[in-house]
Write a protein that binds this DNA or RNA. Sequence first.
DNA 1: GTGAAAGCGCTAACAG
DNA 2: CTGTTAGCGCTTTCAC
Lengths: 346, 346
Amino acid sequence: MSIDEVVDRADRGRVTLQVIAGKLDVSTATVSLALRDSPVVAEATKARVQALARELGYIYNRSAASLRTARTNMIAVGFHDITNPYFAEMLVAVEETAAEAGRTILLGTYAESLERQERVLGTLKEYRPDGMILCPAGGATAESLNHLTAARIPVVQISREIDGVGLDFVGSDDEMGADLAIGHLVDLGHTRIAMIGGNDAISTGRARHRGYRAALQRRGLPFDPALVYMDYGSRQTGLAGIQAVLDLPDPPTAAFCFNDLTAFGALLGLRHRMREAGVDFSIVGCDDVQEAAQWYPALTTVRNHHAEMGRRAAELLIERIENPDLPPRRVLIAPELIVRASTVKR
Amino acid sequence: MSIDEVVDRADRGRVTLQVIAGKLDVSTATVSLALRDSPVVAEATKARVQALARELGYIYNRSAASLRTARTNMIAVGFHDITNPYFAEMLVAVEETAAEAGRTILLGTYAESLERQERVLGTLKEYRPDGMILCPAGGATAESLNHLTAARIPVVQISREIDGVGLDFVGSDDEMGADLAIGHLVDLGHTRIAMIGGNDAISTGRARHRGYRAALQRRGLPFDPALVYMDYGSRQTGLAGIQAVLDLPDPPTAAFCFNDLTAFGALLGLRHRMREAGVDFSIVGCDDVQEAAQWYPALTTVRNHHAEMGRRAAELLIERIENPDLPPRRVLIAPELIVRASTVKR
DNA sequence: GTGAAAGCGCTAACAG
DNA sequence: CTGTTAGCGCTTTCAC
């Protein structure tokens, strides 16, 4: 073969197993095996094949392989929002774990739109990922995931859980987390404790609110609905929520926030009222995103080990891909209270 | 066909064009056309095909289609770090723009590791994405992307630029951004202005430092190397950097930070020294991530329109996919100074 | 240790 | 308007 031919081939990006086989006068089967370093091929042959492949700039075509093997080595990830550092950090953990296991991430996002989620998941599944990791939009129902189970696609839910789908789940023990937070505040002498952010549309919202009420009750404290400000867990919610409860005739002295983002907003809202967390008010967040330690005051929060959640979800999924008949598993990671500077004795 | 057969097919996830064609006694070609709503197929036939496809739970197999068409409708995105909100927000814009154009994102990350970048890009290209959007790790060279250009894969670089690769680029005009920042500080009466964060390994680092020097010079201010604290643009860098320059015999009264993350760290570092931005010191960030407006004090920063960068990058890539022979384009988005509360008259 | 051949599920000519 | 045919690039028996 001439150099020109080689360049020509490489140029047109059309180097296939056939081309290599042709030039070396071996079969495509041998080339295929050789490139995958099969022990069945003679060392000398392998070396020749691999050398030529490199020289020609051969690129393995996974679409073709997938068609044949019914395996894509792709893991589809459907997240509602990767702008929230909690999910961004979780996604990185998923991606890194997947990459270590030779898998690549196919990503879809849908904010909190059920309709976009529908479309995105539909598209993702056409790529035939070996499995999916999902954090559904608020209000998603078991029926909305039926098409995935019907197609027998291995799915693990992360962080948010939909009741009654028999799918794997990796999340945090949110009732315990709320209890940790409330316990800490009560220990500091607080008796009027607000809960800001979170709503009934998502499982974490329900669980953290449930945990909040149970924790109060467990400690003999009354539940006052006026102290509960429910909304999507954003900075804006925290900003508005803290001010709303501060305006109450009998305002709280502390607040447990649905997540760190809400807590950051609350920290700010406090300043707008010339108050300061850690001085004359206490704020506890939930999640422990990187930013939490960096705030001023540094945020006391419930660490949910979200990177570990990401890693575990990827591991669970890979196990399920390899063994689809496993019974559904539910792994709850125990949260941990991280006391920093935003909480103070009453 | 019996219901049992249907259920059986659906169960085994093996509904293909052939199956539908067989049941309807038409050819696979017709089914293929009908499912894509081709005008060439009779309405009645289309309706029958589409109805049966839905009934059987047919899932389009993009691997198979890709093999045939040499188009995957995937866009590979290689980012070094999506934990930085700047890049997370950019990624969302890329993903949404791609989704609107019927493309899905294949994601790879590599932190700042050139070796991981190498591996990740190599894997991504085996999936035969129609194109790639890259933000390379620090220190990446033109050679390290040669394999992509050799394979004639359309690539657009985003945010960070590698000299001498003839690839499309979408980024911000960083010298202008630095000039905006320094101009603002000089207008406020500052003459000793530090620059914190950023390094020579990445194009934005070089450009912002170049802009910083040029801006000083343009205003007749001396350049003092002691005021420059170079490092990767992280919160930690800001925290350490601000304290380092504050320790100088002749400390600055203001600082321009490489990015918002660094600025957040600097804001904190100031507090560790009982100083406060917007009161007795001025800090200007760069990027304007969502968090910037939420800080206390709210951060004065150079808005780089990173969401628009993401959108433009996706658009440029799609244009190039459709027209590979376009000459390389370089789009620089003009930054904008956003004055908030972290800067104050000297 | 290597080759021949079939086929994964789809699309694109081309014929009729 | 619909069918026939070939083939995308790979993997996998099964022979030899």
